[in-house]
Structures are given as C-alpha cells and as structure tokens.
Write a protein that binds this DNA or RNA. Structure first.
Lengths: 198, 198, 198, 198
DNA sequence: GTCTAAGCGAGACGGTACGTCAGGTCTTGCT
DNA sequence: AGCAAGACCTGACGTACCGTCTCGCTTAGAC
C-alpha cells in the first residue's frame, strides 16, 4: 500500500534509468570515464540525450549512481561472527570489497578523480560512498577493541583510516588490490596484539 | 665553453618555461585544475599556445612539472638524527609535507585525479612524485625498525602504505591535512613503542 | 436548437481557443514571432501545450487565426459611395488598413515570412488573407474604371498589384506604412486621369 | 601592389569562404532555407562547423553573402541607351532580374523572411540588396521623366515602389515572376506615354 | 448510477539544431 | 628553428524547441 501519490504528468520511463546506468557502467568499464561522452551513453541506452539530462545533472553524478547501485549489495555491515577472529573477519571483508573494486576499478577511480574537481560532488560521494564503507570498518575495529583484540589505547578511527588509505593508495597508484593486500592489511592492523605487554 | 652545440634556429626562450609554470600554478590554485584551459595558461604567461605545446604534451604533465618544481625542495630525505626518536622525526616530516600539501592541495589533488584517466601519466607521476616520497618514509621506518623502535615482525612497507594512505585518504576526501593528522599518524604507527626520548 | 450532435467525450473548453489566440497576439507583438515558442504561448494562456496542438498544427496557422480574427472586421468590402471619388475612397480604405497594419505589423510580417518557408501555409494565407484584400482593391478600381475615373486601357489587376505591392514593400522593408503612404499611393494610381486624351 | 599588410596568424583558408557560400546556395535551393542546418552546410562544404561560425554569426547573414555574391553581377546600373525607349529598357532590365530571381527564388524569399525576424539583419539586407536595386529603377524612371517619357507631375519614387512592390508581391505570394510580369509592369508604368520607338 | 469517450494539465520522451568551448594541429611572417 | 598570432578540424557540452506520448483527472452523454 503505497502512500506516495504519483506526480502529475507522464511518469518517467521505468526502464530508462536502469538502461542508462547499465550503459554507463558498460562504457566506462570499456573505455574509461574520460573517454565516454554523455551522447555515447544515451546512444548505448537507446535513450534521448535529454532524458539523461532530465535525471542527472552531471556525468559524475550519473556514474556515482550507476556504481552505487552495483555496489549497494556490498554495503551491508558484515555480520559479527563470534566464532571468527576480528582479524579474519576484516580480511574476508576486504577481500570481498577488493573483488568488486577490481572489477569496477576504473569507474571508481574516475569517481574519486571527478570528486577532486567538484566540491559539491565530493560531498555527495563522501556521504553516499565513502563514509558508509569507512563506518563498517570502524565498527568492526571498535568491536575488536571491545573484545580485547585491539589494545584499548589505539585510535580506531585512525586505524580505519589506515585500512582505507592503504587500498585507496594502492588503487590510485595502479598497484594490485587483491587478496594479498587484504591479508597484509589485516595482518598489520592486528599484528600488535601480542604486544599487549608493552 | 659549452660542449653542447647550439642547434640550428632560434633558441628557446629561456624565460618562457618559468613563466608558463608560474602561470599554471597560479591559475590552478585560483580556479582549480578542471577550470583552467591551456589557452588561459598561455595567456596568463604571455606566451603563444604553441610555445606551450612545444614543451609539454599535456596539461597534466605541465602541472606535474609546475608542482614538482615547487616541491623539489621538500623531496630531500630527512636526515637521520640520533637525538630524536623516529616517531618525532616522522611527525615533523609529515607536518612539513602537510604544510606544502595544504598550500598546493588543489593542484596535487588534480594531479592525482588526472593520473586516473591516463595510464602513462600515472606512471610518470608515480615515478617522479609518489615513489620518492614513499621511499623516504619507508627508509625512516626501516631505520626505526633497526633501532628497535618498531618491532622486527612488522611489515615496514605496509606501514609506509598506512602513512601515505592515511593522508591521501584525508586529502582526497577533503578532510584537513594538518599537524593533528601528522601527530595522529605518527602516534598510531609507533603506538606500541613508548616514545622514550620525549 | 442545434442540429449538430455533440460528439462523445468531454467537450472542448470554449474559452481556451480565445485565450490562446489572445496570448499569441500578445506575445508575438511583444517579442516578435521568431522569439515566441509554443510552450510560451501555452503558458501565457494558462493552457496545456497539448490543448494548443489539439486545435492548430503549426505556429503559423495559429498566428494566422489570431491575426485573422483581429482583422476580420477590416475585411468588409468598402461600400461604394457615389458621392466620393474613387481616389478618395481608395485613400480612406488604405488609411484604415494601414492603421491596423501598423498595430499588427510584426505578426503580419511574421506571417508573410512564415509563408515563405511553407508552401501549404502560403496557400492558406493567400486564400484567407491576401486574395480577399486584393479583391477589394481590384473591385474598387474596376468600379472606378467603369466610372471613367480610370482609363479603359489600364490593367486593373496590375494596378491593384501596384497598390498592394507598394505597401508590402514598405512593410517588409521597415518603411512607414501610414496616411502619407496611403495618399501617395492613391494619388499615383489616379494621377493619370487627366491624361485621358493620350 | 597591395598596401594591406597581412594580419598576424594563420591566414584564412581562401577556398573555404567560396566553398561555404557555394554549399549554402546549393542546399538552400535544394531544401529551402528553413530546412538547412548550419551543420549541413559545413558538411557540404567540407569545412568544420566552427570555421563557419568564425566568419558569419548567423545563417541569414551567410545566405545574404552567398546570394549577394551570385547576384553582384546583376547589380550594375543598366546603361542608358538613347536608341531604346525607357519603357523597353525597364522591361528588359526587369526580365533580366526576374530570370535571376526565378533561379534563386527560394534563397531570396528566405532572406526577406529572415529579415522580418531580425531588425539588424533587415537593415543590412536593405542597405546591401534592396536599396541599390531600387535606385537603379528610380534612376531609370527619373531619366525617363527628364526625357518626357513620364509626365513631370509623376512621383518617380512611388512609381519605383510600384515596380518593386509588384514583383515582391508576386514573388512572396508564389505567383510567377517572369517575362509577362516584366512586360505588364513596364506597360502599366509607361501606359500614358505611347511607346514610340517600338 | 455506472460506462465510455474525449478534453485537459502536466510533464517525460525521441529528436534536431543551436552556439560555445576546449584540445591539438597547421600555417603565416618575424626574430 | 623558435615565437606570436590565429585559423582549422574535431568533438563534447548544455540548452531550447519541436511534436508525440502517457499518465490521472474531469466532464459530458449514453446505457
């Protein structure tokens, strides 16, 4: 039972949005963000150029939406599993993220790049994409801290920054973002645990 | 007596290159990378557009050169000073880098952005800009490890990644890159080893 | 008691047509034909764009109707008045037409312009607007010829052409279309009368 | 020996202007003014769209130039020939003009139409196209008046208006503009003076 | 009193053209 | 051979209209 009344006028083509996002991801993956024109996306989606402008005011916002949709599934907070060490949970979470990141590396790097040129877009990108992912890791680490897997003196926010920073750094510098990296990050974040005595 | 024979024809205007780089930095700082056209740079430098193309094939390369020149002074490996803890050395080094980074935030973020769209440029940028800076930190940390300020089991490369990743992450997300960040990074990297000397 | 059966469905809004025509004339007079969009007319008339398309298939046809309505009153054949010379009758008729023409100069010039681009419209425009007015003058002149006010050898159709041509020419070239012109035209058409002997 | 110094920079492609004008005339004749886009002209002329914008700011101005060039040859004042009656000279002049007019009817009607929407353009069109032609006829008629072929009481300007008006009227209403019209116009202008020489 | 048919307001849609802007190349005369 | 100047080709941009369409709602006569 929907309480939302349909607005006046012809309703938006329900398939268009999907087709456009799909076309966007496809082309950006194939050619790279900078080499994809809005006209090309519209053509690929079999949609008028204006239709696209009706919904997104910017290529960056469009790509953000497209990637975001693809990505939404990975945005669920990883379940806390008392049978697994936090280290292993982090590693598995990162591995999963990295898989997606490797597939969509180009669009995502393009988004980060686009965000550098447009303050407003950076806000949105941060709000919708960056912060939620950061929070997941922070939560996981805080949990670990509560469990004693991380020393109480550590700054979890900074550790979370280390985690994200490490793979952003790799991603943006063209270094591989893979299972090895996931293992190394997790290993180094939790490595100090034995150091409890110090 | 120069051993280099002057090539035929009019020699290059020795002042042009400097004027162009200065104009580039000025405009990019004022308007942001994406809103500066090559024509605008040439005009600002009182130089023909072609003169610019004679020297750089790309806006990105030009900005890279411009920033690089400004930046060269900060690229010296920090001297190892046995009277200071490595933690304190790292913090001071980062603080110094961050000062420069804050001034030139926009051009540098633009460079990182530009690198995402152009593989070749990413190589050059990495080679000339990223790797040298990374090495300084890695060296510093390795030194600390040799001194016992970092446990021998730690992965210094990954720690270095953490350091750089952390401020890239902050930089690219519009978070402040300041002395606080420097302190926090250094603090968290060296957290398990009390800062004896201070 | 109307013999026309009302067709099924909701009847047309009786006020819409009038409002649209009024809005059309208003806007065309204010901005000029070329700078008025159909959407603007619909907005001005507080009517949906489609309502407009339900009644006219073309901006030109709409303007034609709008001007035609305004103009219908001037389309009555001037009464033959035996107490006035034909010359004076022509002059008065032209003066009357010119007054209206000066008020509605822009829409009418726009109609003539529009007619140049669209053969079908030119037909309609000619049939509904041009020919009737031409006939009035031709009739007046023929009458004058019968009265001996114009030599029997003259070609009245061509003279009528001269009359209309003269003020079209003035109208389209931005020259004033006023009482002076009316007097001059009438004067020159009837000037040869004394020449009867030749 | 040209005193004009070449301006700095790459000189304009000398062939481009001609090619563009030729393409313009060709397309306008084929499709009609309203159905020719600037892009189509550029394509037909094998020239970049921008090149066209570099030289003309408006389709109307471009067509004006194109037609004007084609037309310049007809702009010479007809020589006064004492062996021919002015009536016959006028008829021959009109016949010549009408031939050109029939060939280029569409572009010229389009120019007249375009002039109705744009005040500035109407000025230019009048100055460069209309007035010179009007003057030729006026001169011819004045000459005839001096010769006694037209009564001294006649208003030559108005007669000239009749001549031009008559064929504009025919042209704009889709009536034929041919030798018959030329003969009729000349005949009616000179009607009261027997054409002695013929 | 429902049913059916059409008009209406609103606004999305596929198109076409517009004028602008930027990038990178080229072609002049001058230095 | 470099330089200033500027034209050229290319291609993308965002905007404006056009004429058509598709909704929900309204307004009538027909059943």
């Amino acid at each position: 039972m929907s309480t939302e009344k349909q607005p006046a006028g012809r309703p938006r083509d329900t398939e268009a949005a999907g087709a456009i996002k799909a076309a966007t991801l496809k082309l950006v993956r194939e050619r790279g963000y900078g080499k994809v024109s809005i006209a090309a996306i519209a053509a690929e989606a079999n949609v008028a150029r204006q239709t696209l402008y009706n919904r997104w005011n910017t290529k960056a916002n469009l790509v953000l939406d497209a990637v975001f949709e693809e990505t939404a599934q990975y945005a669920d907070t990883p379940q806390h599993d008392p049978n697994q060490s936090s280290k292993s949970q982090l590693e598995r979470f990162l591995a999963q993220v990295f898989t997606h990141l490797t597939e969509n590396g180009d669009p995502i790097r393009a988004l980060i790049a686009a965000a550098q040129d447009d303050h407003a877009f950076r806000q949105v990108f941060s709000e919708r994409f960056v912060k939620p992912r950061e929070k997941m890791v922070t939560d996981l680490l805080r949990n670990a801290q509560n469990n004693g897997e991380i020393a109480p003196t550590r700054n979890v926010e900074m550790l979370s920054s280390f985690v994200h920073g490490a793979f952003w750094y790799a991603l943006l510098n063209g270094d591989p973002v893979d299972n090895d990296l996931a293992r190394n990050i997790a290993g180094e974040i939790f490595t100090h645990v034995p150091d409890r005595s110090v």
